[in-house]
């Protein structure tokens, strides 16, 4: 008799409500606060916007004071639109490169002798034991004009002038791919490891070559891992702030930076909140697409 069956219906209901409770407290409530600020006006006060709700009293009167002016402002200046597009572009390219780099790693891990696998997974997770910030700083040391990479390339004679990678979008791509690689490799490895070798043997028996076996059997079956990994990389990369700030140049336009400017430089919490709400909408679309794709995959089987 398993544990679940011994539980009373009430206990079971509480267990199912826990995730909803978390969602309510840590996602929905903050979201509503941000939404409310995005409909307010900036002011020189504490906190720096109004109206401020002090409770339910007068709620309706104050609701009437809310305005969509901040959203009109965002729509009126192409800067925000360009920031969104540029963020999506940087995130998309980074995700694709992470996939191209991560897939062979995950494939190799899944094909390695079973005894090695825990150690290999460990190696993928190992970088997390060092602070994220330190690892990004380390890339500054590698990529800067007098850094390790240029010293090495100059020494080998491949180049005779240092490469200017630091403070460009290329450095941002390198930083994002490096930092998010484990998030791509782990879901890919999880799906590839579960792959039944009998399917590949069957394909071989039916005359499929190595390339055909990969594209017709392995890759389609690993698609859920590809999708999960891609989203785990893409979504945080869109809002990434630290990597472009440290490795990118001043021309690197990303929504995280624009948001920072609104919040800290302009002290305009309402417009910053409106930018954040729009960012959320921009992120919700890929999630919905992902869920549809997953559902389709599930139905195909």
């Amino acid at each position: 008799m398993s544990m679940a069956e011994t539980r009373t219906p009430l206990q079971r209901r509480i267990v199912t409500w826990i995730p909803y409770f978390w969602l309510l407290v840590f996602f929905l409530a903050p979201f509503l606060i941000v939404l409310k600020i995005s409909l307010s006006e900036t002011a020189i006060a504490m906190p720096p916007y109004r109206p401020v709700f002090d409770g339910l009293a007068g709620l309706w009167a104050k609701l009437a004071e809310l305005s969509g002016a901040n959203y009109e402002w965002i729509a009126g200046d192409p800067l925000y639109w360009h920031s969104y597009l540029s963020s999506l572009w940087i995130a998309a390219v980074s995700t694709l490169v992470t996939l191209l780099v991560g897939y062979p790693i995950a494939y190799g891990m899944a094909r390695a002798p079973a005894a090695w696998r825990p150690a290999l997974v460990m190696f993928v997770i190992l970088p997390f034991w060092t602070s994220f910030l330190i690892r990004v700083y380390a890339w500054i040391g590698i990529l800067k004009p007098e850094g390790l990479l240029n010293q090495f390339l100059l020494w080998t004679g491949l180049i005779d002038q240092p490469l200017f990678i630091m403070n460009t979008n290329t450095a941002v791509f390198i930083g994002i791919v490096y930092c998010y690689l484990p998030f791509m490799v782990l879901p890919l490895y999880a799906t590839l490891e579960k792959l039944d070798p009998a399917l590949l043997e069957a394909a071989a028996d039916l005359g499929a070559g190595a390339i055909a076996r990969f594209w017709q059997v392995t890759f389609p079956l690993s698609l859920p891992g590809v999708l999960a990994g891609s989203l785990l990389v893409f979504i945080p990369a869109v809002g990434e702030f630290v990597i472009p700030d440290l490795l990118g140049g001043s021309q690197t336009l990303m929504i995280g930076r624009t948001l920072w400017n609104e919040f800290f430089a302009n002290r305009d919490w309402p417009v910053a909140s409106a930018v954040a709400i729009v960012l959320l909408l921009v992120l919700v679309i890929p999630i919905v697409l992902f869920q549809n794709a997953q559902k389709r995959l599930g139905e195909e089987r």
Binding site: D77, L79, H82, S250, Q251, A265
Partner: peptide
């Protein structure tokens, strides 16, 4: 701030 963004990013 807007002018500064224009200077730094060219946007």
């Amino acid at each position: 701030t807007r002018a500064w963004t224009k200077v730094t990013t060219g946007q």
